[in-house]
């Protein structure tokens, strides 16, 4: 019996199966594997635990993902606060809230990318093979990495939010708006994880880091990062107009505006 997973993560299992020796592809299902979904979640939680344990006990892995968003928030929201004096800057909750949305989404995307680094490292140093051999449901491995990325970002987002509120960020939106903002960021986090995982599993080396980072970095920065789209001009306006990240930012800004202003 081939223990090829079915369902949502079947596509991902293709990558893992390709890397595995033939013998392991055809190994029998474990008698104690329980139900298919039970095995899936068991693997996912085990992988997520391992990644989170590594991240939270290794400062060099945890701190960059934590400090960079805070730093960008500080540098942009603090250093550029005079930008909201520019004629035509119409974001009603102030420049801190305007920048918060960008940094929140950026931290979500890079939380996923950093997890991709970990996957590449696992492949390069052979730990991924151990996972492949041990896991009864391989699709659970990808889900585990995604869970870990979400868990890691949740800590970053919490601290970022606390800092933003502490420095006086104005929140105009209601509870639903805010939930939608964080849900949006979570989707961005998942997208970042899946993108970086794909690259990591394809290239299987930590040297693929720039390939994981650069497109995400450029996509985010070719958007209205400093001022709303309407204030941009020239080539950046043209690029930002068709950049999907612009829609994400605009949706995020709505999450922090009051309902009335958003309707306006």
């Amino acid at each position: 019996m081939i223990s090829r997973p079915k369902g949502r993560f079947r596509w991902a299992s293709k990558w893992f199966d390709r890397s595995a020796p033939t013998a392991t592809r055809a190994r029998p299902a474990r008698p104690d594997a329980g139900t298919a979904s039970g095995a899936f979640w068991s693997v996912a939680f085990a992988v997520a635990w391992r990644v989170l344990h590594n991240v939270f006990t290794t400062p060099s892995l945890f701190l960059p993902g934590m400090i960079f968003p805070l730093f960008f928030f500080t540098a942009f929201a603090g250093g550029l606060s005079r930008v909201d004096n520019i004629p035509g800057f119409d974001f009603p909750n102030g420049y801190t809230a305007f920048q918060f949305v960008f940094v929140l989404l950026q931290s979500a995307a890079f939380g996923g990318v950093f997890t991709g680094f970990g996957i590449a490292r696992d492949f390069e140093y052979g730990f991924a093979r151990r996972l492949l051999l041990a896991a009864p449901r391989r699709s659970g491995i990808v889900a585990g990495y995604a869970l870990a990325a979400a868990g890691r970002w949740a800590v970053t987002a919490t601290i970022l939010t606390i800092v933003a509120l502490a420095v006086g960020m104005q929140v105009g939106g209601g509870g639903v708006d805010l939930v939608a903002l964080y849900a949006l960021a979570l989707i961005v986090n998942l997208a970042g994880t899946l993108w970086a995982s794909g690259i990591a599993m394809r290239l299987r080396t930590v040297q693929a880091g720039p390939i994981m980072q650069l497109p995400v970095f450029l996509t985010l920065f070719f958007a209205p990062v400093y001022v709303p789209l309407a204030l941009l001009n020239g080539w950046l306006h043209s690029v930002a107009s068709v950049n999907p990240a612009t829609s994400l930012l605009e949706a995020g800004w709505r999450g922090l505006r009051s309902a009335e202003r958003a309707a306006l």
Partner: peptide, 8 residues
């Protein structure tokens, strides 16, 4: 490009 409006 992003901060060009800052000249205002």
């Amino acid at each position: 490009a992003g901060l060009s409006p800052a000249t205002k």
